[in-house]
Design a protein around this nucleic acid. Structure first.
Lengths: 124, 124, 124, 124
DNA sequence: GTGGTCTAGACCACG
DNA sequence: GTGGTCTAGACCACC
């Protein structure tokens, strides 16, 4: 379920966070379903439990999951998060578009590029 | 001319690189004009000369400037580089658009976002 | 494994880069195997860690290795890179040959020189 | 007669040395003919006379020219220098060939490359 | 422990 | 004066 790319420059805990955000936002992990325990996931990925702990803590802080002492961690997804996540993604688009504008790339070129992504191929 | 944002989590040398890229791409710094000397700029920004040195070295590697021992550093921007950089930026747009598609953001929303960047406001 | 020649006029970090390139290209350092840590190698060679750091950073930029904070640096060589490097080397040959031609050195002399390198002796 | 390329990374004095070596070895500057004075050449190229002085000193040390106080500098070319220069160039070929060998480029590829340089086009 | 950034200060080659 | 290399030592983020 979780894949770590050791060649990815980003820290491992960040990769884990993003992966869970993805699974939750897309509804693959249903609300109130249980996440793997810190210890189990750490063993499965053969990484340090501290790293998983850190990822879970951050996910809880962001509202994606909630933890109950002695029971485990659970998905706590709601509509608000989806909107938040969407906003984040749109900000990324905005940032890229501003960069393009700086490089004197025309609006048409940028939109053409976007259309190509949407129109072109089916989701892998 | 150069501003360092200490709240920015990115390294200082990266901020300097980006700032100069901007100035050069936009033509504010003309080709073959001289950049401030490593030491001067370091003093002006009250940071270590090594940090400036590093930024200049990277700018040279990327083809934005050329440096000559005992003479100084100079702008070296040409059309070829612009085309190369344009391609890089468009790839970034593509990546962001794919992300948006994954999160079920509609094509219209993305394009709307791009249009807002272009149409909305004058460059700050 | 790494030897520094202080009589060599080239900077230390460049010597280190070249040495590792050699070890990696020849397959003495296998893909995904770990390099000595920045600090260890610095101590072993009794030079400053910054100098090693610089060498590693450049090797990473060139695609020979990849580094991950908190984990270490690892060999990342692939066929694609080999082809790229080959092309670079052949361009160097070409440049040297053109120089020879300018100095009225005959084709035979140049080819003789090449054959001597290949045929003559086993790799030291 | 002498051209300085400010974008060339090599120091100016080195460019001047190489240029004169070329002119002398190829016989464009005849033995015992006079070189431009340090002062004149410096003015012509609008660079520091010290730089010319340094180039001339090095050329004298290498035996390409001789200077007479109060009279000027003169070409002192002889067969030995030609042989020396040739040897230098062949060493460069050798170095490049060894590099190629390291990168597992076959002898045939290298020789093919050399032949292309010789056979291909007329001297520019 | 690991890699990465930064500072302070030195020395070199070049003009 | 200029850029470039190196050392010594510090701090950070990550594991």
């Amino acid at each position: 379920m979780i894949i770590i790319d050791y060649k990815d420059r980003r820290p491992i805990y960040e990769q884990i966070i993003e992966r869970f955000q993805d699974l939750i936002v897309k509804g693959i992990l249903k609300p109130d379903s249980q996440l793997p325990s810190v210890r189990n996931l750490a063993m499965e990925l053969s990484i340090n439990p501290n790293t998983i702990q850190r990822a879970y803590a951050e996910l809880e802080r962001q509202g994606y999951i909630y933890s109950i002492k002695g029971r485990g961690s659970f998905v706590s997804f709601n509509e608000e998060l989806l909107i938040l996540k969407k906003k984040e993604v749109l900000e990324e688009i905005e940032k890229a578009a501003e960069l393009a504008k700086n490089f004197q790339i025309t609006e048409e070129e940028v939109i053409g590029c976007v259309k190509q992504v949407y129109g072109g191929e089916e989701e892998k």
